[in-house]
Amino acid sequence: MQGLRLIFEFFKVSTQAELAYRANFFIRFLNAILNLVTGVLSLTVIFNQVDSIKGWDLPSAMALLGVYLLLAALRGLFIGPSLESVAGMDGEIWQGTFDFTLLRPVDKQFLISFRHWRVLMLFDLCLALGVLGYAIHLMQAELTLLAVLGFIITLIAGVALLYAALLAFSALVFWNSGFLFTWIINDLFQLARYPVELYPVWLRLVLTWIIPVGLMTTIPAQALSGRLSWQWLILTLLFTIGALIGASWLFRQGLKKYTSASS
């Protein structure tokens, strides 16, 4: 399959480029550790003051943190760098080299989604899995097969939702090339660190149905602790499919706009 072969090539080349600079090792390592420490320490500080907030105790909040770090690691592994290289600061739109991308005889959405990899983010991925494991250990509950299955399904949906949101925000750059839309979604993604139920009602609604960063982490964490109803599971899946279709449509509209108005 050409798609997989291309992904493999992109991965190989990106890895080569990243390993060319030794300083990258040190920096990625430092960042990963800082992320882990701030995440875990934040929860410790909060649950040092209270036992639970709106039904979330330390173990379940820790599970959510694990999901958050996992999504953040996947974003950093390829979705983020690929889309940033198009729509971010100094990206192709900014520099005008997007023309070359447009001229490649490959599906453009595929190309801009998988092109750049940051292999050292695999380290963050391991740390995230560690946090998840620790959370499961804290829960001390029997994990039912159903809960694990629900967790995996909703986790995949979470990744897909994150991808759709990032793609949609990246596509906006075609309408205003000077604005860093990807930064907004990166900022908003921080809201996914905590369960949506902790936010005021109006924000909860926004984070669930409009910019679904809340759904990405809250739903999988609920599934893991066996608190997710099947109605919500189905709703999440439907919403994810809708978001993927919508984001892809927006991206194609953006391409049309770009090729009719660029100079």
Binding site: I46, Q49, V50, S52, I53, K54, N176, G178, F179, L180, W183, I184, N186, D187, L188, Q190, L191, R193, Y194, L198, Y199, P200, L203
Partner: peptide, 30 residues
Amino acid sequence: GFFFLLAFGWMLPLLVYLMIWSAAASEGSL
């Protein structure tokens, strides 16, 4: 636009913790 974005990015984490602590304060005394 760029600078407003930066400002937004610095503001957001603070607002997150404001909301988290508010939620915590609503359950018991801090």
